[in-house]
């Protein structure tokens, strides 16, 4: 089948403003959008720029807007989106070139929630034991691959990139509800701030966008409840 691929193109060093370029190419319905982009770059237009690494939905580097939805190009099949496909960079972050955006504000917000394990007790001889139930409490949010599909689909983040954003909340949730961690209070304080969870209006865009199918809005709801009640388990 023939696929029409309309791609957002912008090179700030040369172009005055962004434009769209259309490419036609042969594809099968099980091709991924990433395969199509590789074909365009390899055979039609070497100047096309995009990020990708693993090509298996685990590194989180190829988040883009495909027919208006934030998705990973490597997890989106032609079958899922049809033969007319528009590909654009994710929203709310500065475009560096074509489909590549500046991820710094995203990672800055991520770092704010201290996304690392904190426990000042002397480490036990073997390992810090945890019950299966306690592990299950935050299982969902361990799956995040930091692709930014969620945060860049969130209207609150479009309004201000100081808004911590769903990805930061997901990673805060991952440690706050881990009973081996000791910095829950500090992290709760951070997500409680002016540009924190109260800016989330439960729009559910993030949950729809997450390629790992994390129940993000639910996790944010749990953070809000923890802030109100103080109960973590």
């Amino acid at each position: 089948m023939e696929v029409t691929l309309k791609i957002f193109r912008y090179n700030p060093e040369k172009d005055k403003k962004p434009s769209y370029k259309t490419y036609k190419l042969e594809a099968v319905e099980t091709d991924r959008v990433l395969d199509l982009l590789e074909k365009v770059k390899g055979y039609q237009d070497g100047t096309l720029s995009f990020r990708r690494s693993c090509a298996h939905g685990i590194c989180g580097s190829d988040a883009m807007r495909i027919n208006g939805m934030n998705r990973l190009a490597c997890k989106t099949l032609v079958r899922d989106v049809g033969t007319r496909i528009t590909v654009e960079p994710i929203l709310g972050l500065r475009v560096i070139k074509d489909l590549i955006v500046d991820m710094e504000p995203f990672f800055d917000n991520y770092k704010k929630v201290m996304p690392w394990f904190i426990n000042n007790d002397p480490p036990p001889e073997k390992e810090r034991l945890q019950s299966p139930e306690a592990r299950l409490r935050f299982d969902d949010t361990t799956k995040c691959i930091l692709c930014a599909c969620c945060t860049t689909s969130c209207p609150s983040f479009w309004g201000s990139d100081e808004y911590l954003g769903p990805a930061a909340f997901v990673n805060a949730h991952r440690f706050i509800f881990d009973d081996r961690d000791q910095a829950a209070a500090e992290r709760l304080k951070i997500v409680n701030e002016v540009m924190g969870v109260s800016r989330c209006h439960t729009v559910f865009n993030c949950t729809l966008a997450c390629p790992r199918e994390i129940q993000i809005t639910k996790a944010i709801g749990e953070l809000k409840m923890a802030l109100v009640t103080g109960v973590l388990s």
Partner: peptide
């Protein structure tokens, strides 16, 4: 097992929340 809790003073007051 007793539930894990964070006291009000620890989690802080925020007008927005």
């Amino acid at each position: 097992m007793k539930p894990r809790t964070v006291s009000f003073t620890q989690r802080g007051f925020d007008f927005e929340t």
